Amino acid sequence: MSAKVWLVGAGPGDPELLTLKAVRALHEAQVVLIDDLVNFAILEHCPTARVIAVGKRGGCRSTPQAFIHRLMLRYVRQGKCVVRLKGGDPCIFGRGGEEAEWLRAKGVEVELVNGITAGLAGATQCGISLTLRGVSRGVTLVTAHTQDDSSLNWQALAQSGTTLVVYMGVAKLSEIRDNLLAGGLAANTPVAMIENASLPHQRECRSTLADMQLDAVAFELKSPAILVIGEVAGGYNSAGADVLANSLKHCG
């Protein structure tokens, strides 16, 4: 075992969605820095490691990123095998890239381990295929929360023809709605709002772009949640039925 830092994606919450490589990293870990949204049941894979909570959650008091950097560096320089355990995937809105860059600049060996991101898992649990053939030609992952509070190019997103998966958008539903409508996306575009993706207490609310903010209030939607915006969120609609019928026509 050599001193290094693993930046590990813990997935969206369901411990069974953890990858075998993530389990191996946890078995090797001597120190685990765990994020707030990680399911603590995953820690059964590292029973002897020292576990340090370094929670980061929007709108709450969070551990400063600079402190997390220094903590990883301190332990790896002590010869420890360190796992930085993050919810979802470390490189999808998880700051894995910047942490890896910072550590490598200090001469630290780093390995990134992918995890299943909440946008994918939540949609799948709700029976939504993000790139359903004949309905959606792609998927775009975006965050409604930016470091400098800059605005996304909502018009380009509205006209992209792709399914939109929005992270960290619960507090900005009105802004998202207004910008996408102004960008040309139809008011009746289906929306699925998915809370606590992949966990036993996952909840979903189906709505439309025009009504999603009011429906979210009535549903008492809370973070963490993702939004799936696009025709695929409409369930088994006529477009999906046509695709299935055409597929069956060409089978056997």
Rank of each mutant, 00 (worst) to 15 (best):
P12T: 08
L18P: 05
T19K: 09
H27S: 06
V38S: 04
H45L: 03
T48W: 06
R50S: 00
R61E: 15
S62D: 13
Q65R: 14
A66N: 08
M72D: 07
Y75P: 03
K80I: 01
C81G: 06
V82L: 04
G88K: 06
D89N: 06
D89E: 08
D89S: 10
P90C: 10
F93W: 02
E99A: 07
E99G: 10
G107L: 15
E109I: 12
E109K: 13
V110Y: 03
T131Q: 11
L132Q: 13
L132D: 05
V139S: 09
T140H: 03
L141M: 14
L141F: 15
T146A: 06
W154N: 00
Q155T: 14
Q159D: 01
G169A: 03
K172A: 06
E175R: 11
I176Y: 02
A182C: 04
A186P: 00
A187R: 15
S198W: 09
P200F: 10
P200H: 08
Q202T: 04
R203V: 01
T208K: 09
T208G: 03
D211C: 10
D215H: 15
F219V: 10
I226A: 00
V232M: 08
V232N: 04
G234C: 01
N237T: 11
D242L: 08
A245F: 08
N246A: 15
N246G: 08
L248S: 03
